[in-house]
């Protein structure tokens, strides 16, 4: 009997282990090795920390990372601020028969690729775009203005792309929030703000943390939206990795940047968890 159990274990575990090893571990090992190789003065490839040192010595690299990280945090916060009322509305305000429909509406944009979504925004916002056309027609604007290619538009696009990944975990925690807790707080003299801060947010904390981690990582790793909607000012760290690989042919530097992105973003999440007193194990559960 015991042998049978072990056989089953191997049967089901082998594909997973193979997948992990061949598809994830092996390429990463290759990249890791690559990141520690650099050309010396004679054009020979040698073991070196140069690629990592470059990041800290060249202001543009770490400044770009800092900018990317700060904007990702901002996007995460904004996404949360918008997603919380939406999720609360779906779970506690609207009649249950409509909440499924509303969820479907939220999912709808994700049936098309990110590229199409971003181009959709560009059609709306460009100088000769739909919104400008209507604003001029209604006499609100004298002449069209360029709404694309600035940080605000880029953040708009990133928040839009991240919405679902915040709303879904929030809905699942808010569904378990007993409405009578809110009524009890209201009855004990609390106003809306106190109810939000003392009852709803503490209750939703696991969902907020898991949603925030996903949104933060997705935003940090996004390439298309900053590039297309942000335009000329939107150097994103992923673009720098891409440039190292594609424009500069420097795969070693690109791999080092990739690992730095992984390490630094993990550090930021760790710091975030520490600051809010959350535990990852609790969130994952």
């Amino acid at each position: 009997m015991k042998n049978h159990g072990r056989w089953y274990l191997f049967f089901f575990l082998t594909p997973i282990l193979l997948w992990l090893f061949l598809m994830i571990l092996l390429p990463h090992m290759d990249l890791l090795i690559m990141s520690f190789r650099a050309e010396d003065d004679f054009g020979e490839m040698v073991w070196s920390f140069a690629n990592y040192l470059n990041f800290f010595e060249e202001p543009i690299y770490w400044a770009t990372f800092a900018r990317t990280a700060l904007y990702s945090i901002l996007v995460t916060v904004l996404t949360f601020i918008i997603a919380l009322p939406v999720s609360f509305y779906i779970t506690h305000v609207v009649a249950p028969k409509f909440s499924g429909f509303l969820m479907l509406l939220l999912l709808l944009p994700f049936w098309v690729s990110e590229l199409v979504r971003v181009y959709g925004w560009m059609i709306l916002l460009r100088e000769s775009g739909v919104i400008n056309h209507f604003l001029v027609q209604m006499g609100i604007l004298d002449k069209p203005v360029e709404m694309l290619y600035n940080d605000a538009t880029m953040i708009l696009g990133l928040v839009y792309t991240s919405m679902l990944f915040m709303v879904v975990p929030l809905i699942s925690v808010l569904e378990s929030l007993d409405k009578s807790l809110i009524e009890a707080a209201y009855d004990l003299g609390a106003n809306m703000w106190t109810i939000l801060v003392r009852i709803i947010i503490p209750h939703s904390m696991p969902g907020i943390v898991s949603g925030s981690i996903v949104v933060f990582m997705l935003t940090l790793g996004n390439y298309l939206t900053p590039n297309l909607m942000g335009g000329k000012n939107s150097l994103w760290f992923t673009e720098q990795i891409y440039n190292q690989f594609i424009a500069s042919f420097n795969w070693n530097q690109g791999s080092a940047f990739g690992f730095l992105l992984l390490i630094l973003s993990s550090l930021i999440i760790w710091a975030g968890l520490k600051l809010t007193g959350q535990k990852l194990s609790k969130v994952v559960k």
Binding site: I60, L235, N243, A247, S248, F249, N250
Partner: peptide
Amino acid sequence: LESIEGKTMDKVKASK
């Protein structure tokens, strides 16, 4: 030349 050009472009893109 590519890495020189790459850095130049990064710096232009990152500037304000």
